[in-house]
């Protein structure tokens, strides 16, 4: 179990923000931090991994105290052994894929894990390549494999898939789930993508202005339990058009644009750019193999 109790004054582009949050994360959970840019998500991850020092508070992981401002405990990043996947991947440009992984080996650690991870991440053919020659998805797989070399108990993913196209994202989401289960990790993800969050996480925390404003399972969170629909997709409102007495709302779901009819009261609640759930239960869908 990870218990965070953090206070930190952050200076960001939008001015000064007082971060003050309490979080409890169960061991083995896949947890997502959700919220607007500048809400304090990345800072929370950085404080957990020791890259940023809180002004006050405590960080407890299992029975060990990593940080306690009253007892003057501040475990070095190097000793916290957190697997951290950075948004820009942070692959070492001077090393090949294999060397990037080997660098992460601990003293006297069994080297067989390198081969295992290269195979698992389907990087075998790329192992001699330098990071600059890899595609975004390949870099992401290297970064993830490298973070796992030291067998961390906690894996931190800071918007790991935001720079990738949809197809690659879906593939890597499945890959993240497999990794999470196979290595029995406690995984903490920062993400803006609702589809991704619903697919991956056990538990979601919404952050706003440095505070946790909402907590729950992904289904609770995005209102999925309110409907008994068998069909539901989340998407983004692109356009709201009035046609006679009804409104036609264009929603982007994945790469497809879907038009949904709505009445005036519903349409008044919606703005272009809103994340919405499109659900239906009263019809029988046709399914065809492509």
């Amino acid at each position: 179990m990870i218990r965070l109790n953090l206070k930190k004054t952050l200076k960001s582009a939008g001015g000064i923000m007082a971060l003050d949050l309490q979080l409890t994360i169960e061991k083995g959970q896949f947890v997502t931090l959700f919220g607007e840019s500048g809400a304090g998500k990345t800072s929370t991850l950085r404080m957990l991994s020791g890259l940023l020092k809180p002004d006050s508070g405590t960080i407890k992981v299992g029975e060990t105290t990593w940080f306690d401002s009253h007892k003057n405990i501040d475990l070095k990043t190097q000793l916290r052994k957190v697997g951290y996947v950075f948004q820009d991947y942070a692959l070492f440009p001077n090393m090949s894929v294999r060397q990037n992984l080997e660098y992460a080996l601990q003293k006297n650690q069994d080297r067989t894990i390198i081969g295992e991870l290269l195979e698992f991440a389907e990087l075998g053919e790329l192992e001699q390549r330098k990071p600059e020659t890899l595609s975004g998805g390949q870099k992401q797989r290297v970064a993830l494999a490298r973070a796992l070399v030291q067998r961390p108990e906690i894996l931190i993913l800071d918007e790991p898939l935001s720079a990738l196209d949809l197809k690659m994202r879906i593939k890597l989401q499945e890959y993240l789930l497999r990794v999470h289960k196979k290595y029995k990790l406690t995984t903490i993800l920062v993400s803006h993508d609702i589809g991704e969050i619903v697919k991956l996480s056990d538990c979601v925390f919404e952050l706003q202005n440095g505070r946790v404003i909402k907590k729950g399972t992904a289904a609770d969170f995005f209102g999925l339990n309110k409907t008994s629909a068998k069909f539901r997709f989340s998407g983004e409102v692109l356009k709201i058009e009035k046609e006679d007495v009804i409104y036609v709302i264009s929603v982007l779901i994945g790469n497809d644009i879907i038009k949904v009819v709505s009445d005036r009261t519903e349409a008044n609640d919606l703005r272009v750019g809103d994340q919405v759930l499109v659900a239906s239960k009263a019809f029988n869908p046709i399914i065809q193999k492509l």
């Binding site: 890259l51 820009d88 942070a90 070492f92 440009p93 001077n94």
Partner: peptide, 27 residues
């Protein structure tokens, strides 16, 4: 150099000296 390079190295348990010699200077 992006600061994540050395931060990544620290999260892997590497000392400042190792990070300087093996990651920062070669780049």
């Amino acid at each position: 150099l992006p600061s994540t390079l050395k931060e990544a190295s620290y999260t892997m348990g590497k000392s400042k000296m190792t990070t300087l010699l093996k990651i920062l200077l070669p780049n």
